[in-house]
Computed example of a mutant assay.
Amino acid sequence: MKIKVAYIEEPPFYWTGDDQRPTGADIEVAEVVLRAIGVTDIEYHLTSFGEFLPGVQEGRWDMNVPIFVTAERAQQVAFSVPIWTIGDGFVVRSGNPKQLTSYEAVAARSDARIGLIPEQIQFAAAKAAGVRDSQIVVLKEQPEGIAAFMAGTIDAFPGTALGCRSIAGANPALEAVDVEMGPSSDAPVGGFSFAKGNHALLDAVNKQLRQYLGTADHRARVAKYGFTPSEIDGVIGRGQ
């Protein structure tokens, strides 16, 4: 059985390694789960974030690597059971000179510029917090955020807290901060996504995920990429 899987360049979840093969925490989980359900050939497709949902809907590939689950996205595709729960973080300049620890903090400073990818949930979060269009530098993908820092055009770049830690760890001039959340806010969850009609693959993946998530092998694999226990424990048992 052959399965086509789409991914983008977003360490430590998924990216193209030095050997030009896909790698990352979610790639490893996908490999384990798909092999366990009898897939013998996994064909990866590098794409853009904006093409994830249209691509799987149109049948250009069978499955997307995990992205945040939202009600709007769930109207377009079918999500697997959640595989992680992660809050937002900011990449900022070392020392965080403008003290940007929340979207509201960005909105409160007219001199703060934030890099945002329109299709990602952080764009909506920033707008909801009052960040103005004049403060937003629109980006197409994560690597553009790093380039924008180097060019001095942005002061913050949001993403998952884990992803921000990964970016900052590879760039000494940058720092990662966790975004402050309201007391009633829950960290969003991420899951694989499929075309609405692809019930057989979705059901098979879900069955295997329920058996695999939280096992010693799963925890060891994702810990290598910086996942903390809370980012896994928060989804164990969800979607059962």
Rank of each mutant, 00 (worst) to 15 (best):
E58G: 14
A112M: 13
E58I: 04
T16P: 03
Q76N: 12
P118E: 08
Y103R: 11
Q75E: 13
S102M: 10
D18E: 14
E31W: 07
G87C: 13
F79V: 14
V32W: 00
P12S: 09
T40Q: 14
T40F: 06
V39H: 06
L100G: 14
F90A: 09
I114T: 00
F68S: 04
E51Y: 05
V81W: 02
V69E: 03
Q76D: 04
P118T: 09
Y14A: 14
E43N: 12
H45D: 11
A107H: 11
A78I: 02
E119G: 11
T23R: 15
A108V: 09
S48D: 08
D41E: 15
F49C: 09
I67C: 00
D19R: 08
P54D: 07
G59T: 10
V81R: 08
P22A: 04
E58R: 04
F79D: 06
E43G: 09
W84E: 03
G89K: 13
S80T: 00
A107W: 02
G87H: 13
E43I: 00
F52C: 04
G55M: 03
G115W: 01
I67M: 01
A112L: 14
R93S: 14
P118W: 01
R21K: 15
D111Q: 15
Y44R: 05
L116K: 05
T40R: 08
Q99F: 13
V32A: 12
L100Q: 10
G24V: 11
T16L: 11
S102H: 11
F49A: 15
Q20V: 07
A112V: 11
I42V: 09
F79M: 14
T101M: 14
G89H: 10
Q20D: 13
I37N: 01
W15P: 02
G38S: 06
P66T: 06
S80E: 00
I37S: 03
V81Y: 02
P97S: 10
A71Q: 08
G59Q: 02
W61R: 12
V32I: 14
S110A: 15
V91E: 02
S80A: 04
M63F: 09
E104L: 12
L116G: 02
R93E: 15
I83R: 01
G50T: 08
Q99N: 14
I114D: 03
D19I: 11
